[in-house]
């Protein structure tokens, strides 16, 4: 190896180590800030339990909505080229680049009591502020663009030939989607879901101002961290650790090789 190459490789290693230390040190600091026995004690408080339940429930519903609507929507966009397609994709990515605080204000200006749809909703007896529905809306709004973007990329990477082959064998469009495109895009979809989930479970700004911080109803884990910060920093750190563990577990699940989906290279064509 020439000294030049060694120097270059050394530079690359240095960059990777620097990035790893910078990104992981704060997480290590957080995880070691509270002793494990204290952590257990802190997490047994009723505030944490109710916030955990609110967070899990609202994120579950929000993620179900996001997957149920986002997946077919992303598939349609990649199905064929049409005029304005690039514009449409850019529009979908727009909420993605909104700073979180701006997203929260935008959501309020839409669904809030004085927002675009507020009076209409109120006239039909729908009162969103301070309700769990508002939490679900906030999470879905901030998380969905992350999923859509990943889903579009995942479906776009599926080979046209394989979809056409399935059609040639007489598969209906629905079967092509469910049995060919979906399994082939599964890895990308799962990765997109993991990122969207992490963004959603950490949602803070819109939830605080739109859904409020009502104990047992809208107080999610991130809101509980904020509320506890002024009372008991150890308790706030403990909830923070809990959030990191949940997000870490989801990321891990998304990366694990799937046990349920068929082999990638030869999607099963039997049974049509």
């Amino acid at each position: 190896m020439s000294p030049r190459t060694a120097l270059f490789l050394g530079g690359l290693v240095l960059a990777l180590v620097t990035a790893l230390v910078f990104l992981l040190l704060p997480i290590v600091a957080l995880l070691t800030a509270v002793a494990p026995q204290d952590l257990g004690h802190q997490l047994r408080s009723p505030v944490v339990a109710s916030a955990l339940i609110v967070s899990l429930k609202t994120n579950l519903i929000a993620n179900a909505l996001m997957l149920a609507i986002g997946t077919p929507a992303a598939y349609l966009i990649t199905l064929r080229r049409f005029p304005g397609r690039s514009l449409l994709i850019t529009l979908i990515e727009l909420p993605l680049v909104l700073p979180p605080a701006v997203a929260g204000i935008a959501l309020l200006m839409t669904f809030g009591a004085f927002g675009l749809l507020g009076p209409t909703l109120a006239a039909h007896g729908v009162l969103l502020p301070f309700s769990q529905v508002a939490v679900v809306l906030a999470i879905t709004f901030v998380a969905t663009p992350f999923y859509l973007r990943a889903a579009i990329t995942a479906f776009a990477a599926v080979s046209r030939d394989q979809l056409d082959a399935a059609r040639d064998l007489g598969a209906s469009e629905g079967i092509v989607f469910a049995r060919v495109a979906l399994p082939l895009a599964a890895d990308g979809l799962r990765a997109g879901w993991a990122v969207a989930f992490a963004r959603g479970i950490g949602e803070f700004g819109a939830t605080l101002l739109f859904a409020g911080s009502v104990e047992r109803i809208t107080e999610t884990l991130p809101l509980a961290v904020y509320a506890q910060l002024g009372v008991d920093i150890d308790s706030a750190v403990a909830i923070g650790v809990l959030l990191v563990l949940i997000s870490g577990a989801v990321l891990l699940i998304a990366k694990l090789p799937p046990l349920w989906s068929p082999a990638k290279s030869t999607p099963s064509v039997g049974g049509w």
């Binding site: 309020l108 009591a113 101002l209 409020g212 104990e215 910060l229």
Partner: peptide, 21 residues
């Protein structure tokens, strides 16, 4: 009543001004 609590006075004013409360 349904009571939402905040750690900062500015969050309380914003929540009411925006009509959430």
């Amino acid at each position: 009543n349904t009571v939402s609590t905040y750690t900062k006075a500015s969050d309380v004013t914003a929540t009411i001004a925006l009509g959430s409360a």
